[in-house]
Design a protein around this nucleic acid. Structure first.
Lengths: 276, 276
DNA sequence: AGAATTGTCCCACTATTTGGCACCAAACAA
DNA sequence: TTGTTTGGTGCCAAATAGTGGGACAATTCT
């Protein structure tokens, strides 16, 4: 901060818009300014004057940072034309995408979700036509679910699976549905709705951003699920909240939906996703 | 610099080696250190001790920067586990990919290429089954080529086109070849080799990283071309050097190949590409 | 339980960054 | 062309922002 602790109220008033909200007393002004500069360029401001204005830094300081960032490849410079995000950022972005450990990232979020709902929370990914359970937090209602991390399940009969399907082209839905529902339904076992109805459901789920499972995978168990996306806006995982029917009346599911979706989006953001 | 005034001449000598070449970067130590830190994490070093060691910064300083970077989303922190590249980097990486103006980036490189070869240089991208000429630098040999920026040409009969095809799955080659070579060859007009031979050629081009055009598009004109890739390792453009046959004997083409390829790779690097 | 690593403070010192200014080069407008 | 604006580069005295040592608590490993 430019402001000294001895400054008068009048001066403080004049400081106004410059650095508005964030007065986080960190000890890395130059670094933070540099990062702000990057984001400024990302926002499309490529001229020195505009950047200096946006950051509230004088021309010389701005130029100093700009040339350092260019030298390091974080910005690309077209003399007398402007600045653009540089190749290094692309590389780091790719690396970031690779080294992201989904489970560790998601853990705090699903823990929070488990905490507020009291139900069992799952995290899963798609792996050749099936759901693969990556993580699970048992509910606090005493009842235990059969699911285990490392387990596999059909896509079309589980909440997680349906959430994962929301990210696929609708053309693939039917094949996956067929995969889950063999020609001869095992007597007495639950199963998803027949194709036309199923398609209708998925279409609705896409619109609302979360999916339901009404005892289709296991009798007496209902769940609500939502897809997790990465920086490329691809669905890479899904989160679900599951519980026994008595704890999961229809109206609670509709309340839970947006909450699960919000959790999924929070994870997505940690994966580099940004809202459309 | 971190070095105290008490350092010996010997240490000074080692310091010079350490950051030799970068005599320029002054006035932004904190920023540069922060960026170095990012690259350190990108390199897979996620523990505080390792990072501090790699950067040569004391623990307290390292931690200070780390927490700032985490606060800004450039790093992701899993307490007592380590640091990873953060979501912000993914976002910036995506933005960088978008806002990259291929032509402006490539210009200096193809100018250099035109300069050293004296021939006409082209830059082009693929656009639904055709080459689209984005930029052209006329040769200095007096002869003028018909090509114009903004023009479209078949993929399979041009050097640029073949270079672009090198990045496609071989399964698509035949269709594109057929698209270029209609059933009835227009009498007297040049055309690419027939399919089996053509396929053989492309396979060889893939291996060597650059392609040739032997008067297949225009009689009397030969060219050498190489593909340009972006940060995702996808072929997004191609560069070619073209000239009249007398200036393009076979042996010159083999000399030119690696040069054109090098230029294409230089552009690729500016687009965030890194060697395999 | 002990050892090793990490997260979090604090604080005096000074090296690092600041920002004003001045000059030149390019770009743009007329 | 000329005049005007914006961009690139360098210098330098001033002081702020950053440094790094150290002490302590929390956490994980073994």
């Amino acid at each position: 901060m430019v402001v000294k602790q001895t400054m008068s109220a009048a001066m403080a008033a004049m400081e106004q818009e410059a650095d508005a909200g964030k007065t986080q007393g960190t000890g890395t002004q130059t670094l933070l300014r540099g990062l702000a500069l990057l984001e400024c360029v990302a926002a499309g401001i490529g001229d020195v004057k505009g950047i200096a204005a946006r950051l509230g830094t004088p021309r010389s300081t701005t130029n100093r940072m700009l040339s350092s960032l260019v030298a390091e490849g974080y910005l690309h410079h077209i003399p007398y034309k402007g600045y653009l995000l540089g190749p290094k950022l692309i590389q780091l972005g790719m690396k970031a995408l690779e080294q992201r450990p989904l489970v560790a990232i998601a853990r705090p979020h699903i823990e929070a979700l488990a905490e507020t709902t009291g139900d069992t929370v799952h995290l899963g990914v798609e792996e050749n036509g099936e759901v693969f359970y990556l993580d699970k937090i048992p509910g606090t209602r005493g009842l235990e679910m059969r699911s285990r991390t490392g387990q596999r399940m059909p896509l079309a009969s589980t909440g997680l699976g349906k959430a994962l399907m929301l990210g696929m082209p609708p053309a693939r839905w039917q094949a996956l549905h067929a995969l889950t529902c063999p020609a001869e339904p095992p007597a007495g076992r639950p199963r998803p709705a027949d194709w036309p109805v199923f398609q209708e459901q998925l279409t609705r789920y896409v619109a609302q951003g979360w999916a339901m499972d009404l005892e289709e995978n296991e009798l007496g168990i209902r769940c609500v699920a939502a897809p997790v996306r990465d920086g490329r806006n691809l669905v890479v995982a899904a989160v679900s909240v599951a519980s026994a029917v008595p704890y999961m009346p229809e109206d609670r599911m509709t309340t839970l939906g947006p909450l699960v979706r919000a959790t999924a989006e929070a994870i997505s953001k940690d994966l580099g996703w940004t809202a459309p």
